[in-house]
Computed example of a mutant assay.
Amino acid sequence: MFGFDTDLDAFKIIAFVFPILFIFVFASIFLTLLKVLKQWNYNNKQPKITVPATLLTKSTKVIQHKRNQYIMPSPTSYSLTFEVESGESIELSVDGLTYGKFIENETGILTYQGNKLIHFER
């Protein structure tokens, strides 16, 4: 007769796979949170520095996830590269709203801490 074999019941498979998927998702969230907290802690331990600077470049990085023929929504990271008066280039991570407020070759007073932009006054 047609049907499921009693040894390979769909409920048994789900009961086996679900905990593994739950642990994988929980571990991914935990590791991402740990990475964010580590970067936050690093930035907060750095001194706040205020220097004259020029915005050299704006850049974005898009990570595309392609599954079969569909392109999945992708996270985008934004960064601004400033040149300070000593000639050193500093790349700072920003969010999308902050990224859109800047124009390349602007000059002003830059305040940053670690790799976090605090303020840029034109």
Rank of each mutant, 00 (worst) to 15 (best):
I14F: 14
Y99N: 03
N43P: 02
W40H: 08
I23C: 11
L110F: 01
I71T: 13
G114C: 12
F16D: 08
I71L: 10
S59V: 04
K66E: 09
F24T: 15
D7M: 08
N44M: 13
M72D: 09
T6K: 12
L37K: 02
V84E: 06
N44R: 12
K12R: 07
S74F: 04
F30A: 08
I63Q: 13
Q113M: 07
P75Y: 01
F82R: 00
I20E: 00
F82Y: 05
F26Y: 13
N105P: 05
V62S: 06
V36S: 03
H65F: 09
K58T: 05
N68L: 01
F22P: 00
L110A: 06
A53H: 10
I118P: 06
R67N: 07
N43D: 15
Q69N: 08
L8S: 09
D95E: 13
S28P: 00
P73E: 04
T6V: 15
V51F: 02
S74Q: 03
T107Q: 06
I103L: 15
I23Q: 08
E106V: 04
R122C: 10
I14T: 05
V94D: 06
G108M: 11
W40S: 15
K38M: 12
K101E: 05
S86N: 10
T98P: 03
T54K: 11
A53M: 09
L34R: 15
M1P: 11
F18E: 12
P73Q: 04
F24Y: 08
M72Y: 08
I71Y: 10
W40D: 14
D9A: 08
L97A: 10
D5S: 14
T6Q: 14
L110W: 06
V17F: 14
V51D: 12
I90M: 11
T60S: 02
N115W: 08
G100I: 03
F120C: 14
P19C: 00
S86H: 03
L110N: 01
E91M: 04
F102E: 13
L92Q: 11
Y112Q: 07
W40Y: 14
F18N: 11
D7H: 14
N44H: 12
Y99G: 06
S79W: 07
V25S: 04
L80E: 02
I103C: 09
T107K: 11
F82H: 00
F26C: 06
M1L: 10
Y70T: 12
Q64F: 15
S86I: 01
T76C: 06
A53S: 11
L97H: 13
T111M: 07
H65G: 01
V94T: 11
G87T: 09
S74K: 05
